[in-house]
Structure formats: C-alpha cells, structure tokens
Amino acid sequence: MDKFTTLTGIAAPMPLVNIDTDMIIPKQFLKTIQRSGLGKNLFDEMRYTQDGAEIADFILNQPAYRKSQILVAGDNFGCGSSREHAPWALLDFGIRCVISTSFADIFYNNCFKNGILPVVLPQDAVDHLMDDARKGENARITVDLEAQTVTASDGKTFAFEVDAFKKHCLMNGLDDIGLTLEKASAIDSYEARNATLRPWA
C-alpha cells in the first residue's frame, strides 16, 4: 500500500448526498479477479452513456477535473455494499482523499486499506471546500495527514480527527496482516482458551 502523508491537488465537487457504492463502481465491473484497472469505470453510469460515450457535464469528464486527486462529497459517501472495488476504482483513477460530513462504515475502513484518506469535517467546512472545489484547477486543496488539517486555496484551514492506529498505518503504508501476525501467540492462546470455554464454536 502507498503511504499517505500530504497531498495537494485538484478537488472535484460532488455535492450529491448518499453516493452509494453501486454509483462508484457498478456491479458489472466486480467480475475482475484483480485490484487494478477499475479507474476507467469509476462512476461508470454517471460518466458514460450506455454506448460508452462520455457524458460531458459529469464532473470528472470536465477538462478542469480530469486529474482530480480529491473528492469533496455530500453526506454519507460510500453507503451500500462492502465492495472494496469502490476504493480500488477511486485509487486507480487517482483519487487519494475524499472529504465529506460522513461516510458509510465499511467504505471508510476499506479506504485505509488502500492508501486513501477519508476526511470527516463539519458541514460548514465541507461547504467551504465544496465552493473551493468548484473553482477547478484554480483552487488546489492541501491535505496534511500528519498535522490532520485540510487547507483550502484561500488558506483557510480545517482540522480533522482520525484514529491514531489508522493514521500510523496509512502514513507508513503498513500491512495489517503483518502487524497482526506479530500477535500470533495471543491468537493461539485465545483459541486454546476457546476450545475449553466454547468447544462448539
């Protein structure tokens, strides 16, 4: 997993609330057995017509936003299914950070496993950043994970909260499984204890 430390980039505004995982990556693209290559189908049904032509006014098809690295989105981003294809598609497109007032739990977790930082901010901060994002290439937003801040193009800075362990893993690009296997003896003793306490399990 790629580390995430700081990022300065173009942010695309997507004010729609409840953007679900079916919108982010429709099911016909879940048939892959790989993690990569999903970027071209990110937001597929909003981005392309049925015959595959680009829909010009969709935000990521507009010239100013084709290289967006940040999304500023409406409430409850990523609701719906557990498909990790959603963060895979975002990442493959080049999105490394999503900012919203709230995220669905499973999507939020999945982001951290893939080097994407989901940032939760209050409504007024998201509104400010949404307006900033609407300025396109002229407004670059900076996200600093170490300092836990997002800075708009006008210099206005917003602090955000993030779980310390998740932050540590993301900043260092750490593999969860490796960390857990360091606790293998604790798992062994849990299993031994469980064999007596709950032998049916």
Partner: peptide
C-alpha cells in the same frame, strides 16, 4: 455479524481475526 472489504477478507483468512474498534 457484519460485512468486510476484501483486504479484511484476506486478514481473516490469514489470522482468523479482525482489527476493530
């Protein structure tokens, strides 16, 4: 009982545990 992403599927396959709060 709850849903998990594919990275967590791999984590559970390898360790029979999940990192959770």
């Amino acid at each position: 009982a709850h849903g998990i992403g594919t990275s967590e599927v791999e984590h559970v396959l390898a360790t029979q545990t999940l990192i959770q709060r």
